[in-house]
């Protein structure tokens, strides 16, 4: 049973990926992408990479799904309305899924020894072996935050913008009318 689990989880990942690409409904494809991330996190854990599994579950299945839903609710009006109506269901399903994965991981986790050993070797590998990469990722995150703020920000002062453009428009309109 346990031996078959990685195969099943990998198959589930590809299946969710197919649904995410093929579905016409954005909500379905985003939630399928989230499901693929959760299945992939379970595979990471079963393959022996528990910390990568936690990152995959939290960042890819959580954060990126929320970002996609946020963009959809900003841009697609009818989907946004359905998200608004089905909000409780979606949030409940997502939280229930994450809780289920957490309980499964906690139940399957080998107690104490293996986890502590993985934690220390991982920390050593990350901080001594990949310190340049960590620095680069930190800079990248900073640049990314600046880019997102710059790209999604509204104009700083719409009032002055409208007063700056409207008199010119009116003047040109009047001139056209007069001429």
């Amino acid at each position: 049973m346990i031996e078959q689990l990685p195969t099943a989880v990998l198959g589930l990942t590809v299946l969710f990926g197919l649904v995410a690409v093929a579905a016409r409904d954005f909500l379905v494809s985003i939630l399928s992408l989230s499901g693929a991330s959760v299945a992939l996190a379970v595979y990471f854990f079963l393959a022996g990479a528990p910390i990568a599994a936690v990152f995959e579950a939290v960042v890819a299945a959580g954060l990126i799904t929320v970002l996609f839903l946020f963009v959809i609710s900003l841009t697609e009006a009818d989907t946004a309305e359905r998200i608004e109506r089905g909000k409780l269901t979606v949030v409940g399903l997502a939280l229930g899924g994450l809780l289920g994965v957490g309980i499964a991981v906690w139940a399957l986790l080998d107690p104490v020894a293996s986890e502590a050993a993985t934690g220390t070797t991982f920390a050593q590998a990350l901080w001594s072996g990949r310190s340049v990469d960590l620095l680069a990722v930190t800079i990248l995150m900073f640049v990314g935050v600046l880019a997102v703020v710059r790209l999604t920000a509204e104009r700083l002062d719409p009032v002055t913008d409208t007063t700056a453009t409207q008199p010119g428009d009116r003047a040109s309109g009047q001139q056209e009318g007069e001429s």
Binding site: A49, A52, V59, T121, F122, L126, D133
Partner: peptide, 13 residues
Amino acid sequence: PAGSQGIVVILIV
């Protein structure tokens, strides 16, 4: 699996 965790975490971020 165990050795690539660092690069996998960085790639996810």
